[in-house]
Every structure is written in structure tokens, then in C-alpha cells.
């Protein structure tokens, strides 16, 4: 790191710290207020509830599944959008922004309508989706995957295509060059895309509520629990579940960063 010298360097850094730090203060203040509002008893009580335990399990499982599916489409789409020019690329680019731009509630509504079409109904006949666990994953995936695609595209944009070109002159096919050179270089981007889509899925509420419903022990995820507790006026319960969400998310993100990126 370049050493900080002189008053102007210090003033500049202090200004940056004040501007950026105000956001950190807001986050810490919100968490502290929540912690102060509740007590360990409320947390334990929430954990003792069968419905909350189911919601925790479903939230973690569906978010993990969503992260895997998001990478499944994010890596190839990000690579194609970054490396190739093809007819309709701008249209694809605009389409990929729709899940980011649209209100999540509308995404849920769109999914609900999709599964009312003849195609959706024929899928439902063999594989029930709406108001079942697959609908939770699909609702989360519809929004989260767009973030994975964007992250992977930026990642591949930053990796020079020259590496693949040299690999191809060394005897690799295009796919071998991708697997042996490009993807290992994109490792950090892959981890970021996975954590981003996982975190986004964990907090997704609107599309899950519309497309999967809020049936306890069936399609209830943690944001749904917070909503249900609030709707019956149980503010303490809602805060306790919110804190459980924060703890679960922080734990998973920390584990991923330490084990996949090698730093905290």
C-alpha cells in the first residue's frame, strides 16, 4: 500500500471514511436496535417453533439450490455475452435486465400467469410447481440468476481473451481453453456470483409470496415468517426471526469467503 503522507492525503482519506462509513453506521445501528429490542429468550422461543425451524431449513436449502442454478445459467450466459458478438445481443442484454428492473412482486405474478398457460399447466400435470417447494426455488431463481449473469459477465470482461487464444495455439479446443484457463481465472467471480445470488434468494419475499404462497410447513421461508408474524402483530417474533436470518446469512457468507477465497 502506498504510504499516506501529508495533510491533503489525510483529509482526502477522512472524507472517504466519513462518506462511506455513514452507510456502515446505518447497518450497525439497525442491527443493534434489533438486538436491543429482542432477548435471547425470544430467539430460543423462535427456534423452538416447528414452523420457524422448517422456514430456516427451506430458506437455506432453496437459496443454495437457487445459487447453484444461477451459476448454471450465469457462467455460460456471462461468457457468451462477454466474448461473442451475435445477432440480437442487445435484445438479450435488455432482457437480462428485466428481472433486475421489475419489482420482484411482478416477477412472481408473471410466473403465476406462466403456469396458467397450456405449457405451464402441462408441466404442472407431471411436476407440481405452483404453491409447492419448486415454486419457491423458481421464484428466487427468476430474480437471483440475473445478478449471477451480470457478475459473471463483468468477471469474463476482466479476463483477457488472449489467455484462451494462447491456450488454443497450445493445442486446446475452445472448450478446453475455457475449462483449463478461463474458468480457473474466473474463480473469484464465480464465488461472488454464487454468494450474491444466494443472499438475494435468502431475502426474496415478493415473488415467493405471490407464486408459492405463505403456507406454513409447506412454502414458508424466513421472509414469509417475518411477514406472517408482523401480520398477527407479533413484533417480537418478527424481530427474532429477522435476527436469525442475519445470523444464518452472515455465517454462510463468512464460511464461503474463508474457504473459497482464502480471506475474511
Amino acid at each position: 500500500m502506498t504510504p499516506v503522507r501529508g495533510i491533503s492525503d489525510r483529509v482526502f482519506l477522512v472524507c472517504l471514511a466519513i462518506l462511506g462509513g455513514s452507510y456502515l453506521v446505518l447497518i450497525v445501528a439497525m442491527l443493534a436496535a434489533n438486538i436491543a429490542y429482542t432477548s435471547p429468550n425470544f430467539l430460543l422461543e423462535a427456534l423452538r417453533s416447528r414452523e420457524v425451524r422448517f422456514a430456516i431449513w427451506l430458506s437455506l436449502a432453496s437459496s443454495t439450490m437457487t445459487a447453484i442454478l444461477s451459476l448454471w445459467v450465469g457462467v455460460p450466459l456471462g461468457y457468451l455475452m462477454s466474448r461473442f458478438r451475435f445477432p440480437g445481443k442487445r435484445l438479450c442484454d435488455a432482457l437480462l435486465d428485466i428481472p433486475i428492473v421489475l419489482p420482484p412482486l411482478v416477477i412472481g405474478l408473471c410466473l403465476l400467469i406462466l403456469f396458467q398457460t397450456p405449457l405451464g399447466r402441462s408441466i404442472e400435470r407431471f411436476f407440481p410447481v405452483t404453491y409447492a417447494i419448486p415454486s419457491v426455488v423458481l421464484a428466487q431463481f427468476a430474480v437471483s440468476a440475473a445478478f449471477a449473469v451480470r457478475t459473471m459477465r463483468v468477471t469474463f470482461d476482466e479476463i483477457t481473451p488472449r489467455l484462451e487464444q494462447v491456450a488454443m495455439t497450445l493445442g486446446c479446443s475452445r472448450s478446453q481453453a475455457f475449462w483449463t484457463v478461463t474458468l480457473p481465472e474466473a474463480r473469484r467471480g464465480v464465488v461472488t456470483a454464487a454468494t450474491l445470488s444466494w443472499a438475494r434468494a435468502m431475502g426474496e419475499f415478493g415473488p415467493v409470496l405471490v407464486f408459492a404462497g405463505a403456507t406454513r410447513l409447506r412454502t414458508e421461508v424466513l421472509p414469509t415468517t417475518v411477514f406472517l408474524e408482523l401480520s398477527i402483530g407479533n413484533l417480537y417474533g418478527a424481530v427474532a426471526v429477522s435476527l436469525l436470518m442475519v445470523l444464518a446469512a452472515m455465517l454462510v457468507l463468512l464460511i464461503v469467503r474463508v474457504f473459497c477465497l482464502g480471506h475474511t
Partner: peptide, 16 residues
């Protein structure tokens, strides 16, 4: 490129 039997050293070297 893989079938041409060429050793190529680009200007930026492009080490992996």
C-alpha cells in the same frame, strides 16, 4: 489454431 503446430509468444506474453 490447435491443429496448426505453432508455438506462439504474444507481446503481452499472456502467462496463465
Amino acid at each position: 489454431p490447435a491443429e496448426r503446430g505453432i508455438g506462439y509468444v504474444p507481446q503481452d506474453l499472456a502467462l496463465f
